[in-house]
């Protein structure tokens, strides 16, 4: 575990606490895209199926369980929020899910010559989760651009997700150099995912960091 990976993970963890704080303390899910949160839940469930068959470390196990549980809770809260104005949550997610699934069927890390079919299905689902995570923020980004009164905490949530992605890129550079670690599917999808946040960070800079006190 290098420092870049750890900072990335902590930023990812912080994003959950920021979103949970927003939902619990403001008692409102306004500005939170249910579609993005449902996509993240799908991502974590598909990727962490290996919880059932492999043990890496307690750190990994606990983080995976937390990510699944927290995103499931967030989806539940946002979906059942009576004051949720989801009129602007209009992204057509089938345009994200179906291409990600098709791509995962063709570009994945399966080794059909070894391992059972279930492990290879898990590999396809792992690739699917990587592709889906790369684009899962798009419904949330669309909402941010449409809503005027975006609360700062939602913006900080997005910023911590963007920082998480950026540090994972640094982590991959470090691991490639020092460990020869190379998962091109994750790296290419990670670059795409980080680039999507570049658009957000311009918005963040203009609307949060440059916002004049009123």
């Amino acid at each position: 575990m290098n420092i870049f990976r750890f900072v990335g993970d902590m930023s990812h963890l912080a994003s959950f606490f920021l979103l949970l704080a927003k939902l619990i303390y403001t008692k409102s899910s306004t500005g939170v895209s249910l579609k993005t949160q449902a996509l993240y839940l799908t991502v974590f469930v598909c990727r962490y199926l290996d919880l059932l068959v492999a043990f890496v470390s307690w750190y990994n196990e606990l983080m995976k369980i937390f990510f699944i549980a927290a995103s499931a809770y967030i989806v539940y809260v946002v979906a059942t929020s009576t004051r949720n104005s989801n009129a602007s949550d209009t992204y057509r997610v089938e345009f994200l899910v179906i291409p990600a699934l098709v791509l995962a069927c063709f570009v994945n890390e399966t080794h059909w010559s070894k391992g059972g079919w279930s492990l290879n299905v898990m590999e396809i689902l792992w690739a699917f989760s990587i592709y889906l995570e790369a684009v899962a923020v798009l419904p949330q980004l669309k909402m941010l651009h449409q809503l005027e009164d975006t609360t700062n905490i939602t913006m900080h949530y997005m910023a911590s997700l963007g920082i998480y992605r950026a540090f994972y890129l640094l982590n991959w550079v470090y691991r490639l150099y020092y460990e020869g670690y190379w998962h091109p599917i994750a790296v290419v999808a990670g670059i795409v995912q980080t680039l999507l946040y570049a658009d957000f960070f311009i918005l963040y800079y203009q609307s949060v960091l440059l916002r004049l006190p009123s």
Binding site: A54, E109, E123, A186
Partner: peptide, 10 residues
């Protein structure tokens, strides 16, 4: 099983 299908990241 090869550790997490060779994947140790989140």
């Amino acid at each position: 099983v090869r550790a997490a299908l060779g994947k140790d990241e989140l």
